[in-house]
Simulated assay, not measured.
Amino acid sequence: MATPAHAPDVVLITKSNCHLCADARDAVGRVTAALGLGWTERSIDDDAALRERYAEEIPVVLVDGVQRDFWRVDEARLDRLLRRALDRPA
């Protein structure tokens, strides 16, 4: 698979002891793996600024710094967003 000119920056913001976060990890992992992309996870437990901004919406998915989902990850929507960012047909 060719490396895209711009691989979207996918970040999952989580917290400890969060069952929705576990579901979100699985969803983000499935979508990004299918597209050959990586992703990172950041915890509000370790970052006061993230905790202040996102505490009531955890988990949160950011794509290129833009909030795209929270609480439950819509895998189809995330796939569409990432494909669009990669300029790949669905």
Results as ranks from 00 to 15, higher is better:
M1H: 11
A2Y: 11
T3M: 14
P4V: 05
A5G: 13
A5H: 09
A5K: 14
H6Y: 01
D9G: 08
D9P: 02
D9S: 13
D9I: 03
V10I: 11
V10L: 04
V11C: 10
V11G: 03
L12N: 02
I13D: 10
T14K: 09
T14N: 07
K15A: 08
K15L: 09
K15S: 11
S16K: 15
N17H: 15
N17S: 15
C18K: 11
C21W: 04
A22I: 14
A22P: 01
A22Q: 14
A22W: 02
A24V: 04
D26R: 15
A27P: 02
V28D: 12
G29K: 07
R30G: 05
R30L: 06
V31A: 05
V31W: 05
A34P: 02
A34I: 02
A34W: 05
A34G: 13
L35D: 08
L35S: 03
L37T: 05
G38R: 11
W39P: 03
T40S: 14
E41H: 03
E41R: 07
E41N: 08
R42Q: 13
R42W: 04
S43P: 02
I44S: 01
I44K: 02
D45E: 06
D46S: 12
A48W: 00
A48N: 01
L50Y: 00
R51V: 02
R51L: 08
E52I: 00
Y54M: 05
A55G: 09
E56K: 12
E56A: 12
E57V: 01
E57Y: 10
E57A: 11
E57T: 10
I58F: 00
P59Y: 02
V60M: 07
L62N: 02
L62S: 01
V63S: 07
D64E: 01
D64K: 00
V66I: 08
V66Q: 13
Q67H: 01
R68W: 00
R68P: 00
D69M: 15
D69Y: 06
F70R: 11
F70E: 05
F70S: 13
F70Q: 09
W71P: 03
W71F: 12
V73M: 04
E75R: 04
R77S: 10
D79C: 10
R80H: 12
R80T: 07
R80D: 13
L81E: 09
L81M: 08
L82I: 00
R84P: 01
A85L: 08
A85S: 13
L86K: 06
L86C: 07
D87R: 15
R88I: 12
R88K: 10
P89C: 09
A90Y: 10
